[in-house]
Amino acid sequence: MMFLDPDFILSALRTGTPLMLVALGVLVAERAGVLFLGVEGVMLTGAFFGVLGAVYMDDPWAGVLTGTLVGMVAGLITAALVVWLPTDQVVMGLALNIAAIGLTSFLFRLAAGDLSQMTPPLNFTVPESLADNAFFAFLFGVPPLTWLTLVLSVVTSYLLFRSAPGLLLRSVGQDVKAARSAGIDIRVVRTVAMVIVGGLTGLGGAALTVGWVRSFSDDITAGRGFIALAAVYFGRWYPGWTLFGCLLFGIGESVAFRAQMLGGNPHLYLMIPYVLTVAVLALTGRARAPREVGRPYEGN
């Protein structure tokens, strides 16, 4: 009963949900040819503003919306910097991460008094008539944002691989010259993509704070954005495998928590998700990214 019981699965889902949302964002960015190294910073920003919105509007969904909207703004800023200027995508991504840590820490200090309270809970309540049924108890125990993630995954997958806008976006990420020859405005496509990407990443941040731990602390994302990035590589830029990669990390973390009950040094167990991530990445071999990822588009 220690592993693979409903509580274990719920724990893995709680851990994996923010990663899945962020990974979807990274996936879209890279499919559009933008190396989104600023993912950690945008996630952190969404995490902070999510809590801020939830506390000040006393509604967790308002927090989720705030985190998403601020993420979209951050995505737009990223687009302005790496698509329109365009600056080096690696340097700008790292700079955005550092700036986000500074900005959120500064604002957190200003709002610390108000943010000492927990945000309102974001979960479903099991109807009393179904509370004794283990299956329904499990279904209602799944975080609402996990359901939303599943819906968004299906939508993203459909839009990317079964729709005309998706084809447009993928062509921009694969070969800008060919896309431009076909009359596609590269900058507009990438800008729209980055706004969506920012929204998904901000939503991922809000899923971490509002949807999971209900509070904020400095650098609360603690590298989760980069783990989502690794999951995209693991998933070879396909949503299904990418989400599986995120879930694998969630499972690894949940195993790490539970393994402590076996005794021994807890640090040893806490390495599990990271070792798992490295092992999986190593075993999946070399993946081929969309060809234009990381290359600045100069417009000629």
């Binding site: 709680r14 731990v213 609360i220 949940s254 928590f257 539970r258 402590q260 009950m261 807890p266 806490l270």
Partner: peptide, 22 residues
């Protein structure tokens, strides 16, 4: 149980949930 650091809110939460489930 130990969460493994002094800063990780999510980890500390999940470790605690597990003890409560026990």
């Amino acid at each position: 149980a130990f969460s493994g650091d002094w800063t990780g809110i999510p980890r500390a939460r999940e470790v605690s949930v597990l003890q409560i489930q026990q």
